[in-house]
Amino acid sequence: MRIFTLARKEFKDILSERIYIITLLLQIFVVVGIVFLGMFYAQIQYSITYVGDVYVESDNHQFYEQLTRDERIRLVNTPDTAVAVITVKEGAIDVEMRDGRFANDVEDVINRAYTNMRFEWGTVSAGPNPVFIEIMNSLLIPLVLLLPVFFSMNILSDSIVKEKERKTLEILFSVPMRREEIIIGKIIPVVVLGLAQVIAWTTLLRLIYPFLYNIPLVILFLVMIMAFFFSSAVAFSTYAGTMRESNLFLILFMMAVTFLVFVPFPKEFSFLSRLSPMGGIVAFSSNPGLLITEVVPYFVVYGILSLGSFYVASRMLSKDEYTRLG
């Protein structure tokens, strides 16, 4: 019960800081901005690849079918508005280009349709631009969902260092609570706030982009990531002597995480991306169906990391040399 008393007190302290509240609200703009960035990039990709109306006269039905699959063109019934008029007769392809700037694109469309005729393609439902889907699923949505984690690390770190600087940490240690309980009591309000944000952003994202799946599992995974990140923040801020040191350690930690998330690995080392928190979020949120054998490893890895960082944090909090200021 003492844990919850401490958690309540920490929660009130966080909510009493107007700056945290304003920072939370500012995230809305970041989230909306990120989504529009995805739409913008997809629109650019669409603008440079889309050809327009194409008129086709073909004695090869398979070739015609293949052309209908290509979203870079729109097949029309009359050649009046067509950018290109394609005639396929007895194995020969003739193209009348109405606008020379699209010649390369039309050639690519034809080559693709002709060479992919050798396969039998199933039906795909209509929907958003595939580039937009990929960017949203594999980059922007995980980024949005990890934002609360990154912001909250700062809150937690400040809380510990401030206690050290005001010498109230020693008073806290005099309360009959184990160090582990103190850490949990400090982490709980930050996790609750983080989760509230995650739920808010998930709801917002679903309004703009409905293809978000397995949300309860994603939230559970994020809780595990938070446990790891927040325990690490407790460890860093306990080790740090001042706010300056604490901020520097956090910056280094975030840089390391950024590398892991955004550094493109050569093929031989691509398995390293499995360690990335983004990898787990992408896997769970982007696919409607999941195999248990693929879900469990992520939880195992981050479970071990969370326990490890929690152990380190509690050991450090037990040592006087780290809890004294300076």
Partner: peptide
């Protein structure tokens, strides 16, 4: 929705050099 992305990448990857001449006018 990933099916659209898969089709997009497969169409690109499976594309080959055609064994047919295309004439442009």
């Amino acid at each position: 929705p990933k099916a659209r992305v898969a089709e997009f990448h497969l169409q690109r990857l499976l594309q080959q050099e055609p064994d047919i001449e295309t004439s442009f006018v």
